[in-house]
Design a protein around this nucleic acid. Sequence first.
DNA 1: ACTAACTTGTTATAGTATTACGTCTGTATC
DNA 2: GATACAGACGTAATACTATAACAAGTTAGT
Lengths: 164, 164
Amino acid sequence: MLNPALPLGFAHHDHTNCVIDTLTAAETYCAEKELRFTPVRRKVLEILSQEHRALGAYAILDRLRESGFGSQPPIAYRALDFLVLNGLAHKIERLNAFIACSHLGYTHTPFFMICHLCNTVAEAQYVPDRGALESAAQTAGFHIEQTVVEAKGVCPSCITKGDI
Amino acid sequence: MLNPALPLGFAHHDHTNCVIDTLTAAETYCAEKELRFTPVRRKVLEILSQEHRALGAYAILDRLRESGFGSQPPIAYRALDFLVLNGLAHKIERLNAFIACSHLGYTHTPFFMICHLCNTVAEAQYVPDRGALESAAQTAGFHIEQTVVEAKGVCPSCITKGDI
DNA sequence: ACTAACTTGTTATAGTATTACGTCTGTATC
DNA sequence: GATACAGACGTAATACTATAACAAGTTAGT
């Protein structure tokens, strides 16, 4: 099980476990919700979980092709739509790219930290601040359904390298 | 002067003043910072401030053409880059579209409320919650340079109409 | 087996954004 | 005033991102 307290991505670790853990969690999750975790969808999630960078749809498509799947855009986009819709992956709007969810099963407002030097993306557990955001929305009479928070900046390893 | 406390966009009001106020504020701001507020840039900001919806680059381009400016994409993108870089406009990543800043001169982390029924966008004054976001970033050792918060939901007038 | 709902494959096309290069304009310097 | 420089604009070409539409295959329930 993935630990929701630690933002992966910036820390060194064994990717093999990431992939296995993510896929196992996804399988369990889909079984519970009676969702079809088909080969393409599984492959896309596998591809995404192999790195903690966001991948564009066409980069994913290239890897699908190498693995013998269809190679037209809708193949990738449909799998990604499924993953995003069901919270197994997220779209990073600033990058027009996608990343595996690292807090599957925990309801959360994703908070992404995007390093603009090495393009690594980490997803932090962000307990939605119902104080500030909700109150701003309430003042306006707005009903929030979904919130995305994306921060651009420099990740710890680039700071250490002195690139800042 | 624009009132930073009230999120425009969802409230009925006279647009004429919005446009004039925005352009005047931008002129003053650019003069202070020794930025060139050229005719194209001015025109793009004028176009944006005429509505409180986000406009795509190509929609802006159409209107530039009608006004006798160049009609190739870079014309619009360069003006938009300038406006965004200097805080006179913001990009709504979820929509790949742009909107005039309604809190010019106030340092702020923009918080956008996007109505997915009527596509109206309101920018709220969001006092950055250094508690939750910063602490999540600090835990990860991440240095935040810029943060974008985008909420999808339903605006007050669509709620009233019963579209929800 | 039959049907309905869903998923995949493929073609074509729409929408968003950037690169590259030439020209012009304003400013500072000699 | 002539010159050099930087920034901004005009245009053409191209790259990147995403969706529509339709045909064919698959799965689960009847």
